[in-house]
Structures are given as C-alpha cells and as structure tokens.
C-alpha cells in the first residue's frame, strides 16, 4: 500500500494531480519508458506499481479498478496481457527511476521512469550478505582449525590411553 502523499498536490489541486498521474501512468504503460520530472516520477511510481499489481491479479474487478485510473482500454489491455505476465516472477519493484540531470529552460531535475523488463536476478542484497558472511567465516575457519587441533592432540592420546587401559584391564 503506497504511503499517502503529504504537502502540496502536483498541478495545484487534487483533481489536477489525479489527472496528471493518470496521464503519466497511461503513457508509461504505452511506451514502457517515459521522461518526466523527478517529482512526478516519484509520485507516479507507487501508483503505477499498484496498477501492475492489479494487472497481475487479472480478474474483471481488477481490470475495472485499473480502468478508473487508466481510461484507455487499449493500454489497459496491453497492461493485462503483455506487461503483467512479464512481471509474474517479480514481487514489487516493477519500475525504475533514473535521474538524468537538470532540464534546459527551467533547470528542473529530470528523470526516466521505466518498466523493468530484465528477468528477476537472485536477490543481490542476499548475495552480498552471503558473501560478507562467507568472508567473515573464512578467517574464523582459518583460526578455528588451529585451536581444535591443539585441543584434539591432548585428547586423542588420552582417549587412546583410556581405551588401552580398558583393553589392558
């Protein structure tokens, strides 16, 4: 569930913001990648991802809920039939925002928001954690074998001695 937006609306009024975001999401699903200002991209992201979640559900109710925002039936059709299946493996994070620097004219910070089309890679955060853990474990292991060897050597003769004693007795 997206966090409610605080502060002023885009375009001045709530109605205007809804229109702007509806148009932006329509354009995003139509073209897959759009260039807009950073602020608009950041506001668009939760809405667009929510719509994709509806599209992944795929039933008529979900389709009608998407149609409340995206008025274009053709775009909704592509969203449900083409975009949703590609996102089947992905659990959220369907869009990516990349900053591309300030715009000439009004110096507004611009960004590209795009649908992620690459196949899902194994969780990189987990991999990083795993490698870090392995690095930590490796020196510990190097240190660890030295200690058990020292411990084992006295124990082993003792154990052997014990067995020998038992045998002798």
């Amino acid at each position: 569930m997206p966090t409610p937006t605080k502060g002023a609306r885009l375009g001045g009024s709530p109605a205007h913001e809804r229109l702007i975001l509806a148009n932006l999401s329509t354009a995003l699903f139509e073209h897959g990648r759009i260039t807009t200002t950073e602020t608009k991209a950041k506001r668009l992201r939760p809405l667009a991802e929510r719509l994709i979640t509806f599209a992944k559900k795929g039933d008529l109710h979900a389709r009608r809920r998407v149609l409340r925002v995206v008025r274009d039936k053709g775009v909704v059709h592509t969203l449900f039939t083409e975009i949703a299946p590609t996102m089947a493996e992905r659990n959220g994070g369907y869009t990516r925002i990349t900053k591309i620097g300030p715009r000439k004219g009004d110096n507004a910070p611009m960004a590209v928001i795009e649908l992620i089309t690459e196949p899902v890679s194994p969780k990189q955060a987990v991999v990083k954690e795993a490698t870090k853990a392995a690095e930590k474990a490796a020196p510990a292991e190097k240190a660890a074998p030295a200690e058990p060897e020292v411990e084992e050597t006295p124990e082993a003769p003792a154990a052997e001695a014990g067995t020998e004693e038992q045998k002798e007795s």
Binding site: R33, T35, T98, K99, I100, G101, R103, K104, M110, V112
Partner: peptide, 20 residues
Amino acid sequence: ACPTCGTYKGRTYRDALKTV
C-alpha cells in the same frame, strides 16, 4: 546518468538526455 555518454549502471539513457 552521464550527460556525455548517457549511461548509468550499464544502461543507456541517451535518447532521454537528447529530448531533455
């Protein structure tokens, strides 16, 4: 994204930079 070559983390954004 780099304004000179248009790449960011191995992806290209040259077209977007051009339009901006």
